[in-house]
Every structure is written in structure tokens, then in C-alpha cells.
């Protein structure tokens, strides 16, 4: 059993809601969308240029070699992995918010990509994928001949 201590009256780490409010006021409340960090399924952002599709996903604390990344049917990207718990050797927990356990994210890409040309990197806890668009999906310049 994990030792867990949570007593509202002796909480050693009391969250400063007042500070949060101040910060939000300072940064302009109109532009602020306060939200909790992503849930069990990691969120993804997708960009593209003429030849590539770029995917980014926040996966803090995860090693790249522990991830399973596949592309099926030309545009179905799947990222699977597992979130490891924080090392707590002999320590007492006060708060555990970080998610633990396996996750799967399936994403349908906007265009067909080449499943053999996927570049992946994981830096600062952010997974970045660079996928090459299949030839048919690349934009073509049409030459117009005067008739």
C-alpha cells in the first residue's frame, strides 16, 4: 500500500488560489481560458506544409522507445504508450494528480501519408512527428497553356 497523507487541516501544501487570480488579472482575463491539463487521452495539434504533416502531442515523463507509433490505411495515426508513476521510494504522498497507466490516441490525418517515412522525436516531454505526404496528396502546379 502506498502511504498517503491528506488532511485538509494539516495540508502542508496549500494551493494559492488568490495568486492564480492575480496572475490571471495581470495577463488579461479576456484572453485567458483557464483549463486543467489534458486528460487520459493526450491532445494533439496538427500542422502541414506542401510536403509534410506535423503532429505534436504532450507526453511529459515518457521515453520515446516506450511508445508505439503506427500509421494504418494511409492516414490513421495511432500512438500508444504508458505513463509511469512518479518514483516515490519511501516517500509519503500529499498529492497525486499526474496520470498513470496505458493510453491510446488515434488520429485521422487530413491527407494520406507514407507510413515508411515517419520521423519522431520526443523533447521536453513533447512528441513531434513529421510525416511525408503521399505523392498523390502533394499539391501540384498546373501549367496553363494558352490555346
Amino acid at each position: 500500500m502506498t502511504p498517503f497523507r491528506r488532511d485538509p487541516f494539516t495540508d502542508l501544501f496549500y494551493e494559492m488560489a488568490r495568486f492564480q487570480e492575480q496572475f490571471e488579472r495581470m495577463f488579461g482575463i479576456g484572453n485567458l481560458l483557464r483549463q486543467t491539463a489534458a486528460g487520459v487521452v493526450p491532445l494533439a495539434n496538427v500542422w502541414q506544409d506542401d510536403n509534410h504533416v506535423y503532429v505534436e502531442m504532450d507526453l511529459p515523463g515518457i521515453q520515446l522507445d516506450k511508445l508505439d507509433i503506427t500509421v494504418k490505411e494511409g492516414n490513421v495515426l495511432t500512438v500508444q504508450g504508458e505513463r509511469e508513476p512518479t518514483n516515490s521510494d519511501g516517500a509519503v504522498w500529499h498529492r497525486q494528480e499526474r496520470l498513470v497507466g496505458p493510453f491510446t490516441r488515434v488520429l485521422t490525418l487530413p491527407v494520406l501519408v507514407d507510413p515508411d517515412k515517419v520521423e519522431a522525436s520526443l523533447e521536453q516531454g513533447v512528441l513531434r512527428l513529421k510525416l511525408s505526404k503521399s505523392e498523390a496528396a502533394k499539391p501540384r502546379k498546373i501549367t496553363v497553356r494558352a490555346g
Binding site: 483549463q35 516517500a91 504522498w93 500529499h94 499526474r98
Partner: peptide
């Protein structure tokens, strides 16, 4: 602005806070 998820642990010697800042 996002509130990062945190884990907070205590040992005899220290308080330890782990925050996700990807």
C-alpha cells in the same frame, strides 16, 4: 495559462514537487 498537474511527496529530509511542464 494552464494549471500543470503536480505530484507532491514528502520524505524525512524534503518536500518534493513534480510538475508537468511539457
Amino acid at each position: 495559462t494552464l494549471s500543470p498537474r503536480v505530484d507532491i511527496l514528502e520524505t524525512d529530509d524534503e518536500m518534493r514537487l513534480v510538475a508537468e511542464l511539457p
